[in-house]
Design a protein around this nucleic acid. Structure first.
Length: 899
DNA sequence: ATCCAGACTTGATGCAATGGAG
DNA sequence: CTCCATTGCATCAAGTCTGGAT
C-alpha cells in the first residue's frame, strides 16, 4: 500500500533479490551473518536441544523451511510443528499485563509481581495468540499447519505460550508454529529459485522470501521480559495487560533472510535503483499488506522471515549442519558468497563469513574543525584582566562556556581542568589556581555570540548552512562495493573538556585537538588516498583492511588506549545487515528460550557455585533485561551490570523479593523491587553471606564465562541478545494484544505505549525537561479554565431551558442567546476537550523520565513495526522517520517476501 | 585461562528544525 | 505569523563482545 509507497527503499530489491538485483545488493551481509549464525547454530544444535523437541526442532524447521525454499531441497515446510500447540493452549494468562509500569527504572512497586504471574499471563497470551493464529489461517495453510500456526500468531501470542512455559521451563514446541506461515512463501521462492544451483548463501538470500519458517523464532515461548513478567505478576494485571502483552511474544526475527537480499540490492542500486525500488516496493508492499493484514505481526514476521528465508534457511541449514559440522556451514556460506559474486560481483558481502566486509571502498577521509579563533575577551584573575595566548584562551573559554552546567559544582571536574589548563599556562604563570579566576567576561561574550546567531535572519542562516554543506559534501559519502553510502561521523571531534557521565574520574580533562597525524585511514587498495585537508600535514597511516567497517580512527585523547572510529551511517547496508543479524539472533532465541529457562531454573539449586551463579545471573538478565556487566577500570565511572553487581546492590526482602539499586550504564540509576522464584531468592542470599557490601555478588562470574556458557545453549547467544529478544517480543506482544479498531492517532498511541513498556524494561531514562513543571502547571491552568467554562455553560443551559438569557461573561458583556441544543453541544465539546487534555497531561507525566528513542532504534525489530503498520493501515512514517525507513530496507524486504 | 586490543553497538544529551496552537 | 514544545539528528561517551597474544 499506500503507506509503503512512500518509502522509497522499498527495496525494489525484493524483487530483484532474486537475481539480478542481488548483485548489487550487498548480499554479503546476509550471507556473512547467516554464516555466523549457522555456525553458531551448528554448535548449539549439537549440544543439547535435540532432545527437546522445542528448540531444535524449530531451528531445524526454520532452516529447512527457508533453505528449502531457497536451497533446494525442498524441504517441506513441515518440520515438527505439532509441538507447539500444546504449549499455547495451556494456560494463557488472563491478565496479561499487569503493571507494566513497575519496571520502570525507578522504583516500581510493581516489581513485586512474581514470575508466576507473569508466566500465567504469558500463558494467557498464548491462548490469545492461538486464537489469532487460527484466524489467520492463510499463512498456515500454506505450509505446515502446525508451524504455521505459530507463525501466524503474533509473536506475543506465541511468546505468551512460551513465556509461561519459559518461566517454568515448560514446554517446548512453540517454535514450530511460527514457521508454518512462512512456508507458502518459501515454496514460492523455491519455485522461483532455481537457486538450487546457486551457492547456498545465494539461495538463502533468495529463499529468504520464502521465509515462513524464519518467523518462528519469536514464538512465544517466553513472552515477556522478566521485568514485564514481574510486573504482571501483581494483581495489577488488568491494568498492566498492555504490558503483559510484552511478555507474550517476542518478535519474529525471521525477516532477516529476505531483508538481506533487498538490502544488498539497494546499495548497489543506489542511484537509479531508488526509483525502481520504490516501485517495487509498492508492489511488494501491497502484496505484503494484503497478506499480512489479517495476520498478526508475528505471523507476518514469519512471513517476512520467510522472505528472509535465505537467512533463515541458512540458519536452518546451519543448525543442521552445525550439528554435523561447522565446516559445512562455512562452506555453504562460502558457496553462497561465491554465487553471489558470480551473480553480482559487487556483493562480496557474503564472503566473509564474517571476515570480509567489503571489496572496494572509496571515501574522502574526514573533515577537521576550524582552527581556534581568539576572541580577545579577557578573563579576570584576582579581579584583574589577564592576557592569555590563543592556546590558553581557548582552554579557558571551554571552561567558561560551561558556567551554567552542573559540572561546575563538581570538584573533580575543576581539579582535572586545572591540572590540564595549568600545563597550558606554563610554569610561573600569573594564574596560580582556579579560585581567583573569574570567567564571567568570557561567558558573557559567549552568550552574546549565541544571541547574535539566534538573531540572524533566516536568509543568513540558510547561507551559512549551504556554505557548510558545500564544504562537507565530499566527506558525506563513501562508495562501498560500488554503492554510494552515507558516512556517519566524518567530522573529527573538536577539542573540548571531557564530559564524562556520572562521577567520572576524568571529567574536566582537556580533550586536545586531533590532527591528521593522529588519524589512520582505511580505504580500498585501488582507491585514491584522501587528500589531507590541512596543508603541510599528513595522515598517520593508510590501511586497506576489508575485514573491518571503519573508514578512519584515532586514539581517544582522554584514554589513549581507546579508539574513536569513523563508520558508515546507520542507514548504510553494512549497518543494516548487522542490525538484521542482531534481530535474527533474537528471533532465534525465541526457539531456544524455553529450554534455556528450563536449564537455568534447574541450576538455581546446583551444587556447583559457579553453575548456580551462572543460572541466577542468566535469570536476572532474562527477567530484568540487565546488561552483562563487564569489568571496569578504576579510571572509569563506577557503574555495574549483572556480572559486576555488588552485594550492596541487591537487598533481599522476605519472603521472596529482591530490591535492586545500582548505577548502570551512563550512571543511570536502576531501582526495582521484584518478586523472584524462591530458589533464586535463596541463592542470592547465599551469594551474599560472608561478604561485604562492596564485594562482587557473583564472585565466580564474569561476562566471558557467562557468554561462553550462553553460547553452549544457543549459537551466537550472548547476554545482550536477551535484551533485544525481550524488547521485541514485548513490542510484538503488546501490539497484538492492544491494538483495536480506531483511527490512526489512537493506534499510534498504542504503539507508543508498547514502546514505552520496552523503554521501561530496558531502563531507558531521560532527564526531566527544564520546562516540564511549567508545562504541567500551564496545562492544569487550562483545564481549570475549561472547567469554569463548563460550569457557566451548564448554568446557561438551565436558563436557556427556562427561556432566560445567558449570564454575562467575565467582562460583563452579554453573551449570545443560544438554543439549549446548541449549549448542550458546546458542553459536550468542552468535555471532550477537557478529557483530551487530561489524557495528554497524564501521558506527559508518565513519560517525563522515559526515553523512547533508544529502544526504538536499537531494540525493536523494525519488521514488527512495519508489519503492524501495514496490518492496521498506519502510515509507517507515523512511527519511523526517514532515516529509519532507509535503514529498514531489509525489513521491508522481509515483509514483502513474507507476504 | 587471562588479558587486552580492537571493533562495534548502545545511550543520553543538546541544539536545530519542524509544526501546531493561538 | 509567532511562540514554544516536540521531533529529528548529530555528538560523543559508555557499554558489549571477539579474537589473538601470552
Amino acid at each position: 500500500m499506500a503507506v509503503e509507497a512512500p518509502s522509497k527503499h522499498v527495496f525494489d530489491f525484493d524483487d530483484d533479490d532474486d537475481d539480478g538485483p542481488v548483485v548489487f545488493k550487498r548480499n554479503n551481509t546476509s550471507s556473512s551473518k547467516q554464516n555466523q549464525l549457522n555456525s553458531e547454530v551448528k554448535k548449539a544444535s549439537s549440544q543439547r536441544y535435540d532432545g527437546q523437541s522445542g528448540r531444535p526442532a524449530s531451528d531445524a524447521r526454520v532452516l529447512n523451511g527457508q533453505s528449502t525454499g531457497s536451497q533446494n531441497k525442498s524441504i517441506p515446510p513441515s518440520k515438527s510443528p505439532p509441538v507447539r500447540s500444546p504449549i499455547l493452549s495451556p494456560k494463557s494468562s488472563n491478565s496479561s499485563a499487569k503493571a507494566s509500569p513497575v519496571r520502570s527504572p525507578v522504583v516500581n512497586s510493581k516489581a513485586s509481581t512474581s514470575l508466576n504471574d507473569q508466566s500465567k499471563q504469558a500463558m494467557r497470551q498464548n491462548k490469545f495468540t492461538a486464537v489469532k493464529e487460527e484466524k489467520s489461517p492463510m499463512k498456515t495453510t500454506e505450509t505446515n499447519s502446525d508451524d504455521d500456526d505459530d507463525d501466524s500468531q503474533p509473536l506475543s501470542a506465541r511468546l505468551k505460550g512460551i513465556s509461561s512455559q519459559g518461566n517454568k521451563g515448560a514446554s517446548t514446541s512453540t517454535p514450530a508454529q511460527s514457521q508454518r506461515l512462512v512456508p507458502k512463501i518459501e515454496i514460492k521462492v523455491s519455485a522461483e529459485d532455481p537457486d538450487d544451483e546457486a551457492p547456498l548463501s545465494a539461495r538463502f538470500k533468495m529463499k529468504s522470501n520464502t521465509g515462513t519458517s524464519s518467523n518462528k523464532p519469536y514464538e512465544s515461548h517466553e513472552k515477556k521480559p522478566l521485568a514485564s513478567k514481574i510486573q504482571q505478576n501483581g494483581s495489577t494485571m488488568k491494568v498492566k495487560q498492555q504490558k503483559s502483552s510484552l511478555l507474550s511474544d517476542k518478535r519474529p526475527l525471521d525477516k532477516g533472510n529476505s531483508s538481506d537480499q533487498s538490502c544488498a540490492k539497494k546499495p548497489k542500486i543506489s542511484d537509479t535503483p531508488t526509483t525502481l525500488k520504490s516501485k517495487q516496493v509498492t508492489v511488494k508492499a501491497e502484496k505484503a499488506e494484503e497478506d499480512d493484514d489479517h495476520i498478526p505481526i508475528s505471523q507476518r514476521i514469519k512471513k517476512s522471515v520467510s522472505s528472509d528465508s535465505k537467512t533463515s534457511s541458512m540458519k536452518q541449514k546451519a543448525t543442521k549442519v552445525v550439528s554435523s559440522l561447522k565446516k559445512i556451514n562455512k562452506n555453504s556460506k562460502k558457496e553462497m558468497k561465491k554465487s553471489k559474486y558470480s551473480k553480482s560481483t559487487k556483493l562480496s558481502p557474503s564472503s566473509g563469513d564474517g571476515q570480509k566486509k567489503w571489496s572496494t571502498l572509496v571515501h574522502n577521509g574526514v573533515i577537521f574543525p576550524p582552527p581556534y579563533k581568539p576572541h580577545g575577551i579577557k578573563m579576570l584573575y584576582d579581579g584583574r584582566p589577564v592576557d592569555l595566548t590563543p592556546e590558553q584562551e581557548e582552554v579557558a573559554t571551554m571552561f567558561a562556556v560551561m558556567k551554567d552546567t552542573d559540572y561546575m559544582s563538581k570538584p573533580q571536574f575543576k581539579k582535572n581542568f586545572w591540572e590540564d589548563w595549568s600545563k597550558v599556562l606554563g610554569r610561573g604563570h600569573i594564574i596560580k589556581g582556579l579560585d581567583k579566576c573569574d570567567f564571567t567576561p568570557i561567558y558573557e561574550w559567549h552568550l552574546e555570540e549565541k544571541e547574535k546567531k539566534k538573531q540572524m535572519s533566516s536568509e543568513e542562516k540558510k547561507a551559512l548552512k549551504e556554505e557548510k554543506l558545500k564544504q562537507e559534501e565530499k566527506y558525506m559519502w563513501a562508495i562501498v562495493d560500488g554503492v554510494k553510502e552515507k558516512v556517519g561521523n566524518f567530522r573529527v571531534e573538536p577539542p573540548g573538556l571531557f564530559r564524562g557521565r556520572g562521577e567520572h574520574p576524568k571529567m574536566g580533562k582537556l580533550k586536545r585537538r586531533i590532527r591528521p597525524c593522529d588519524i589512520t585511514i582505511n580505504i580500498g587498495k585501488d582507491a585514491p588516498i584522501p587528500e589531507c585537508p590541512i596543508p603541510g600535514e599528513r595522515w598517520k597511516e593508510i590501511k586497506h583492511d576489508n575485514t573491518v567497517t571503519w573508514l578512519a580512527f584515532w586514539n581517544d585523547p582522554i584514554n589513549p588506549k581507546e579508539f574513536k572510529y569513523v563508520f558508515l551511517a546507520a542507514s548504510s547496508s553494512l549497518k543494516g545487515q548487522s542490525d538484521k543479524e542482531k534481530y535474527e539472533k533474537a528471533r532465534l532465541l525465541k526457539d531456544y528460550i524455553k529450554n534455556i529457562r528450563a536449564a537455568y531454573t534447574k541450576n538455581f539449586t546446583a551444587k556447583d557455585v559457579t553453575k548456580r551463579q551462572i543460572a541466577v545471573a542468566t535469570y536476572l538478565i532474562d527477567k530484568l533485561a540487565l546488561r552483562a556487566g563487564n569489568e571496569k577500570d578504576d579510571d572509569e565511572a563506577d557503574t555495574v551490570g549483572c556480572c559486576t553487581l555488588k552485594v550492596g546492590n541487591v537487598e533481599c526482602i522476605p519472603p521472596n523479593k529482591l530490591k535492586f539499586d545500582f548505577l548502570g550504564k551512563d550512571s543511570i540509576q536502576y531501582v526495582n523491587t521484584v518478586e523472584v522464584e524462591l530458589p533464586v531468592y535463596k541463592a542470592i542470599g547465599q551469594f551474599q553471606t560472608g561478604k561485604s557490601k562492596t564485594d562482587d555478588l557473583f564472585d565466580e562470574l564474569d561476562t566471558s564465562k557467562l557468554n561462553a556458557h550462553l553460547k553452549e545453549l544457543m549459537p551466537g547467544l550472548t547476554a545482550k541478545v536477551f535484551r533485544t529478544y525481550n524488547a521485541s517480543i514485548t513490542l510484538d506482544d503488546m501490539l497484538n494484544k492492544e491494538t483495536r479498531d480506531g483511527d490512526v492517532a489512537e493506534k499510534v498511541v498504542i504503539y507508543q505505549r508498547a514502546n514505552k513498556e520496552v523503554a521501561i524494561i530496558c531502563n531507558h531514562q531521560r532527564t526531566i525537561s527544564k520546562s516540564h513543571s511549567a508545562q504541567m502547571s500551564r496545562l492544569t491552568e487550562k483545564i481549570t479554565e475549561l472547567k469554569g467554562v463548563l460550569k457557566e455553560l451548564k448554568i446557561d443551559l438551565d436558563r436557556a431551558k427556562k427561556g432566560k438569557p445567558p449570564l454575562k461573561d467575565a467582562d460583563g458583556k452579554q453573551k449570545r442567546n443560544l438554543s439549549p441544543e446548541a449549549i448542550e453541544k458546546k458542553i459536550a465539546q468542552t468535555n471532550v476537550k477537557i478529557e483530551k487534555m487530561e489524557r495528554d497531561m497524564q501521558t506527559k507525566e508518565d513519560l517525563k523520565t522515559v526515553a523512547l528513542g533508544t529502544s526504538k532504534i536499537n531494540y525493536l525489530d523494525p519488521r514488527i513495526t512495519v508489519a503492524w503498520c501495514k496490518r492496521h493501515e498506519v502510515p509507517i512514517e507515523k512511527i519511523f522517520n526517514n532515516d529509519y525507513q532507509t535503514v529498514e530496507c531489509w525489513t521491508r524486504d522481509t515483509l514483502k517476501n513474507g507476504s
